[in-house]
C-alpha cells in the first residue's frame, strides 16, 4: 500500500452550458467528463510533477486528492484513510488568489501556524520563511499592494512554513519573473531534499518537471487519462542541457504533448 492511493477516479463537471456532445458520448447532458479512470499511487516523500495540456483536469485532480472536491467516483486513500475533507497538514498552494486579501502577509503566514503556542517560536518561523522568499520589509503589507510575483512568493512561504506532510502545488511559478521562478524552484527543491515531505505539483513547464520531479505523470487532453508515468533517477543538481538522458526525455514529453519541434 502506497502513501497516497488514487483508485479509478472519474469526474464530471456540471455546467448548464454543456449542451453539445458527440453522438457516442454517454455522459449526461450538462456534464463534461474531466477525469477518466485515473489510477495512481504516490510514495511518502516523493516529489511528483503532473503535466498535461490546458483544461485537461490537472487542477480538478489536485483538488480531489487534497479533499476539496468530494463529488467524484472512485477513492483517494492517504495513509490508509479515505480522504473526505481537506487537512491542515496537507497544504494547497492555489493557482491564483490564495492569499486572503484583508490580511497582511504576516497574518496570512500565521494562518497555518495557529497551533504553535509559543509566540517566539512562531515569529521566528514566520521570519525564516519570509526571508526565504525575500519578502523582508513587506510583512505588514496587504496582498493588494504586492506585485503578482510577490503574492505568489508569500503564498509559497505560507505553505512551506507549515512544514506540511503533503504540499500540493497548482502551478506555483506562473506569474513569477524568470529569475524568481528559477530561484524559488531551487528553494523548493532544496526544501524537498531537506525535509523530505511529499509534494505533488501541477505545472505547465516541462523543464520544471524535469529538474524537480522524482516522477513525472502526464495526462492526456480532456478527459484526462494517465498517458505516462516515468521515474526520474537523474542525479541532482540537474541540468537539462548537460544531461543527455534529460534532454531526450524532454523531447519525448514534448512529442507526447503534441509539440513536435522545439527550438
Amino acid at each position: 500500500m502506497s502513501y497516497i492511493e488514487i483508485k479509478n477516479i472519474n469526474k464530471s463537471h456540471y455546467n448548464k452550458r454543456n449542451k453539445k456532445r458527440a453522438p457516442d458520448d454517454s455522459t449526461k447532458i450538462g456534464f463534461i467528463q474531466v477525469l477518466d479512470n485515473i489510477d495512481l499511487s504516490f510514495e511518502e516523500g516523493e516529489m511528483v510533477c503532473i503535466l498535461g495540456p490546458s483544461g485537461c483536469g490537472k487542477s480538478t485532480l489536485l483538488n480531489i486528492i487534497a479533499g476539496f472536491d468530494t463529488a467524484y467516483d472512485g477513492e483517494v486513500i492517504i495513509n490508509d484513510k479515505k480522504v473526505k475533507h481537506a487537512s491542515s497538514n496537507h497544504i494547497f498552494v492555489f493557482q491564483q488568489n490564495g492569499l486572503l486579501p484583508w490580511m497582511t502577509v504576516w497574518e496570512n503566514m500565521e494562518l497555518g501556524l495557529r497551533n504553535i503556542q509559543d509566540t517566539e517560536v512562531k515569529n521566528e518561523r514566520i521570519m525564516e520563511y519570509i526571508e526565504l522568499v525575500e519578502l523582508n520589509g513587506f510583512e505588514d503589507h496587504l496582498p493588494s499592494s504586492l506585485s503578482g510575483g510577490m503574492q505568489r512568493r508569500a503564498e509559497l512561504a505560507r505553505a512551506l512554513a507549515v512544514k506540511p506532510d503533503i504540499l500540493y502545488l497548482d502551478e506555483p511559478f506562473t506569474g513569477l519573473d524568470y529569475l524568481t521562478h528559477l530561484k524559488i524552484r531551487e528553494e523548493v527543491v532544496n526544501i524537498h531534499e531537506y525535509i523530505g515531505k511529499t509534494m505533488i505539483m501541477v505545472t505547465h513547464f516541462i523543464e520544471d518537471a524535469l529538474i524537480m520531479a522524482d516522477r513525472i505523470i502526464i495526462l492526456s487532453e480532456r478527459p484526462g487519462r494517465v498517458l505516462m508515468t516515468r521515474k526520474l533517477d537523474f542525479p541532482r543538481p540537474r541540468n537539462i542541457n548537460k544531461d543527455r538522458g534529460l534532454s531526450e526525455l524532454r523531447d519525448e514529453i514534448f512529442l507526447m504533448l503534441g509539440v513536435s519541434y522545439v527550438a
Binding site: 487534497a66 476539496f68 475533507h85 481537506a86 491542515s88 496537507h90 497544504i91 494547497f92 492555489f94 491564483q96 488568489n97 490564495g98 486572503l100 494562518l111 497555518g112 495557529r114
Partner: peptide
Amino acid sequence: NPIYFQVATNFN
C-alpha cells in the same frame, strides 16, 4: 471567491 473558502478549510 470560493478559493477563500478553500483556504479556510485548508487552514482549519
